[in-house]
Structures are given as structure tokens and as C-alpha cells.
Design a protein around this nucleic acid. Structure first.
Lengths: 224, 224
DNA sequence: ATGTTTATAGTCAAATTTGAACAAGGAACC
DNA sequence: GGTTCCTTGTTCAAATTTGACTATAAACAT
């Protein structure tokens, strides 16, 4: 994932003077699906890189209570403006999520009709169970931070994002079920993938026809 | 992205004896948002790795028409079963898509109310324009491959996946608009992020209270 | 008492990804 | 007739990521 820079810079900024282990813990505690997980090594690497780039600086290297020495960092003025730039870049730029299911689906035809419908239905079930879990989470927490009720607090922006996740999972699950039904009924035939040879012919035909479907280009250009 | 192996192996399998450049071209022609893009170098690296792993084998290294020499590969028997395993692994395992917007949203509070609503509304607009483009694409193509109409053909499984994409984009866009409205009305206050100190206190409170909200654990466990 | 996890804190080699560079033929342009 | 750009095909150094490993103290079990 390429958001490592933003994540680590943002966490150093937010957590004030921190050492790598705290950043790691904080990220682990987020463990938000959708926010790619970052290995321990990547965090320390990012901290060093950000330091040589002048975006953060070493505050001190010291050991407390005979524990292993730790280096604490804080954000610099340059880092602050780079952070502002990065957040805006990532938020304004509408990038497509990188979906492993999408990639694998390209080869879904190797599963037979039965395995495919089974797979899609199980996927839908799992999605529904996750939706349920998030719903429970949202119901058992609040967006207000009341003293004495700290464990019930979930920041409003996190709650909003969780709502988005469930909305997305609902349509995804529905798509899985609809698609399973379509495959079962024979309406959708995944086996109808052109063989490489057919595909080559098709490609050749398109090329020599000197005619590309304009909708394809139109569509691809919206992602530039 | 960690689907490189599957993608390259699958393409070598599908395209029969191929050289790296063809794989590259095929992937470029897909240029499906959601299927992570793979750099040229990664393809050649994957081909070499797959070869040393015995999943594919070199057919020949030759140069045609005085063009640069090229090495062609084809899948092996071991490769075929590994491919079958990989496809199933990726399809059955319900992994969360890695969403850059989600990551950046964690820091959305640095944008003010105005910039935030503007950002969300522009995002919605862009999503709608993409939905429109895909809709046009689906309408101007068919799932049947008729000779003489090759440029109108779009494989059924691709059409199905595009439908999923639009469904997802529709909810995403709606969420953006709803959220923009909630921010504007003051109902949703992104500035209400606990300061690091508050957060530390909260964390401390939770730890010493020896009480974790069970819903959090419940929720996280569904992603294991 | 003694062995075994667990939490803290970070390093390092190996694997992977990126993207520019290289090389050479052909088409387009002026 | 020369310059520039595009397509074909691949390589390579540098950047990044992974995840297993080191080390120590406290907590816990036997």
C-alpha cells in the first residue's frame, strides 16, 4: 500500500512525540478493514525516511525503566505542510479501491457452476455477518465522549465511515446473491470466456477494423 | 498488491505460450479499476519467480523480424494446480478491499467544514460520471460474441463485475452526499476528534477499567 | 523456584515493486 | 532526408514491504 507515508506522518503528527512502537500499536488498534495493514518493519522504515526527508525529527533516544532504548519523533513545520498536501491529495483524488475479489473474479470461470454459486452465497453470508457485527458496534457506542463512559465512545468520523462500509457491504452481498441466482438459472454463463485464440482473433478483428468501441475509451478516460 | 502472482500465472495459463510484453499489454488493456495496476518490472519479475518455482516454464527465447529477443512461457502441470488453488483462495477468502479514501478519511478533520463538504460533493459527482460511463459501456455492448460485431462484445463475467462496480459506486456517492449534508447541518462534527492527550486518557481509562466494549472485539474477530 | 507466555522496542536480510533506461525498427512529420 | 515519436521487449538499480528474529522485563503458570 502507498498510504504508508500519510498514515505514519499523520500518526506522528496526531500523537505528538512518539516512538515507533506506539505508532504500531495505534495502527493495530485501528485494525480497520479498508485501511491496509502495515508491517512493523514498514513503520520503522517510514520513520527513518520521513526523518531524512525532514518531515519529522528525532526528539530523543532514551530508555525508560531499563526497557529497550526508543527513539521518539515529532512532526516538523515542513512535515506539517506536506501532511496537509497529502491528506488533500488522497481525499480529493477519487481512486478506486484495490479489490482482491475483483482480481480473482477474472478467473472465476475455472470454478464450475456449483462451486461458483456456493462461493458467492457463502461470501454473501460472511458479508451479512460482518454487517451485523458493525451494526451492533454502532448501536453499543456513541459519538459523544462522556466521562466515565469512555469505552462507549467511538469518534463520529469513524462511525460515519463504518456506516459507509456497511452500506457498501450490503450492495456487495446483494450482488453476490443476484449473481449466484443468475448463474444457477443459466442466465449468466461464466464459461463463455473467449479462448485465447478467439480472443486473439477478436483483438485482431478490432484492430484491423480500425474501430474501437468509443464507450470503452470514454469509460477508461474517466479514471485518468 | 499481492495478487500479482495470480494475475501473471492466470494470464500465462490463459494466453498459452506468451512473452512478458503480451502479458503487460493484456493487463494494460484490462485497466480495470479495482484490479491493481502492475508495473512492467513486476511482470518480468513474476515470470522469473514463477519459473524458478516451477509453475511456468520457458518455451523458447527467440527474436522475430530482428525485433528484440523475447522469451515465451507456458504453464506447467504444477502451475495449473497452484493456479486452481490460488483462484479458490482469493475467491473464497472474503478480504476487504484496500481503500485509499478510507485511509485518508481518518485525517479528514484537518479539512474545514467547507472544504470537507466541497470535497465530498465533488467526489459524488465524479462517481456519478463514472457510473454514467459504465452504464453507457454496458448499453453499447453485448455479452454475446457475434461475428462481425466483435467490438460490441464484452464477456458476461466482465459485465457482471461492472454492474457490481456501479452498484458500489452508487452507494458510495449517496454516502458522500448524505455525509456532506450532515457536516453542513452541524449534525456531524469531524472536529470532534479526541486530542492525543484525551485519547491517551481514554485509552488508559479503558485499560484500567479492565473493560473493553465486547462489540469491538466481536466486530474485529469477524475479519480474522 | 522455574519455565512460559506476553508486552515492549526495534533490526535486518530477503522478497517485491517501481519506474526510468535501453535498444531497435517503423511511421509520421516537416 | 533528417528528426522525433510510437511500438515492441526487456533489464536494472533503487525504494519499499515483509515478517521473522533479537533482547529484556514483567506477569503467569507449574
Amino acid at each position: 500500500m502507498w498510504s504508508t507515508r500519510l498514515l505514519v506522518l499523520g500518526l506522528v503528527r496526531w500523537l505528538g512525540p512518539v516512538h515507533g512502537y506506539l505508532v504500531r500499536r495505534e495502527l493495530d488498534s485501528w485494525r480497520m478493514p479498508g485501511v491496509g495493514e502495515i508491517g512493523a518493519g514498514s513503520i520503522y522504515h517510514a520513520l527513518k525516511k520521513l526523518t531524512t526527508d525532514g518531515l519529522i525529527e528525532v526528539v530523543a533516544t532514551e530508555s525508560v525503566d531499563d526497557r529497550p532504548a526508543r527513539t521518539t519523533y515529532r512532526i516538523t513545520v515542513t512535515g506539517e505542510s506536506e501532511f496537509q498536501r497529502l491528506v488533500r491529495e488522497k481525499l480529493w483524488n477519487v481512486a478506486q479501491a484495490d479489490d482482491p475479489f475483483h482480481t480473482a473474479w477474472s478467473f472465476a470461470n475455472v470454478l464450475g457452476k456449483n462451486e461458483n454459486t456456493a462461493m458467492l452465497r457463502r461470501r454473501a453470508e460472511i458479508l451479512y455477518s460482518r454487517i451485523e457485527a458493525v451494526t451492533v458496534l454502532l448501536a453499543s457506542t456513541t459519538g459523544e465522549c462522556a466521562p466515565g463512559r469512555e469505552e462507549e465512545f467511538l469518534p463520529p468520523h469513524v462511525r460515519a465511515m463504518l456506516k459507509r462500509q456497511t452500506d457498501l457491504m450490503v450492495v456487495d452481498a446483494e450482488w453476490c446473491e443476484t449473481t449466484a441466482a443468475r448463474i444457477e438459472s443459466g442466465e449468466l454463463d461464466l464459461g463463455a470466456v473467449p479462448s485465447p485464440v478467439e480472443n486473439e482473433n477478436r483483438r485482431e478483428a478490432i484492430r484491423t477494423d480500425d474501430f474501437q468501441n468509443p464507450a470503452v475509451e470514454q469509460w477508461q478516460s474517466t479514471f485518468k
